[in-house]
């Protein structure tokens, strides 16, 4: 067990290091000049040179990298060239929004996908299963940019049940907060439901053909108990892996709903920063997001050991 975590932790450090290089390089190898962004296209070459020097952008790449990394280690991710907002601040205001979106959408996804899969996998390819399974293809075909406008059109503009845009912090008014978050959360939950359901269903179907399920039946256990206590846990590997990748993708991947519902999450801040060539912001956010992604995968890996003791003790 200890060895397992030690090895994983070393990997984590290595991966984090590579990611920092990647986040740095991508931004710096791009053509284009940040001085143009800051000073506008018509300023003199001299002014540009001064600015680049001020920003340290005239130094060799590796020096810029180490300077940046040292600052990162001190908790300083830099600040926007444009409005001087610090990256840490952008993250601190944006992250709670994304977290809430992810939590609500994932709760919905699991609450729908798991019971449905447990139900249909017992009688695969029967009418109920076929309807549910084809239905999830429908969900899969409704990415946020397709479904979110429709949700807005129907539930916000048409029925006026929910506000169309805006954000109220949870701490300020939990009820209003929830009302603002429901539509965007639902908009990003469809894909999760479909993926989780399909993976769990297919793993359950193969688990249910295992001898140990027949064995559990031969003990006289109820179907319900067999499904939850015997079949579910060994069938969650693909589901866990998918959830890790999916949630990781959502950290910066909710920019569509953030844009549409005017939420200032990390995703849309990142897209905006890229679009405005706001180097340090892009670099800082993408580093944090990639790290969060990797850490999430490590958590998933840990969960594998919880689900199946063979993983860590083989």
């Amino acid at each position: 067990m200890g060895k397992y975590f030690l090895r994983r932790s070393i990997q984590l450090v290595v991966v984090a290091f590579i990611i920092s290089i990647l986040a740095f390089l991508l931004v710096h190898l791009l053509p284009g000049d940040p001085s143009v962004t800051i000073l506008g296209p018509n300023d003199t070459a001299q002014n540009r040179a001064i600015l680049l020097k001020q920003l340290g952008l005239n130094k060799p790449l590796w020096q810029q990298y180490t300077t940046w990394l040292t600052a990162v280690f001190h908790g300083n991710l830099g600040q926007s060239y444009l409005n001087h907002e610090s990256v840490v601040h952008i993250l601190a205001t944006g992250f709670p929004i994304d977290l809430e979106l992810i939590v609500i959408s994932q709760i919905i996804a699991f609450a729908v996908a798991i019971p449905l899969a447990l139900f249909t996998s017992r009688r695969p390819n029967r009418p109920v299963d076929n309807v549910a399974t084809t239905g999830t293809f429908g969900l899969l075909a409704l990415p946020p940019f397709v479904i979110a406008p429709i949700l807005v059109a129907v539930f916000a503009v048409g029925l006026n049940w929910f506000p169309a845009t805006g954000f109220v912090p949870l701490t300020q008014d939990p009820w209003a907060n929830l009302q603002h978050m429901i539509l965007p959360s639902v908009a990003i939950t469809f894909g999760s439901i479909a993926v989780y359901y399909r993976l769990l269903r297919s793993d359950l179907i193969s688990t249910l053909q295992q001898d140990f399920i027949t064995m559990a039946r031969s003990k006289g256990l109820s179907n319900r108990r067999i499904m939850w206590r015997h079949a579910f846990r060994p069938s969650t590997f693909s589901l866990l892996a998918a959830a890790g990748v999916n949630i990781g993708g959502l950290i910066a991947g909710t920019f569509i709903v953030e844009y549409l519902f005017a939420l200032s999450g990390i995703g849309f801040s990142l897209v905006q920063a890229v679009n405005q060539r706001d180097y340090l912001v892009v670099q800082g956010i993408s580093l944090v997001v990639a790290l969060a992604y990797v850490i999430l995968q490590f958590i998933v890996d840990f969960l594998f050991t919880v689900v199946d003791p063979r993983v860590s003790r083989g």
Partner: peptide, 18 residues
């Protein structure tokens, strides 16, 4: 694997923009 951890959309938008 590491590349997949990087938010790809950033790279795509950035490169498209330039």
């Amino acid at each position: 694997f590491v590349i997949l951890a990087y938010p790809a959309i950033v790279a795509v938008i950035a490169i498209v923009a330039f």
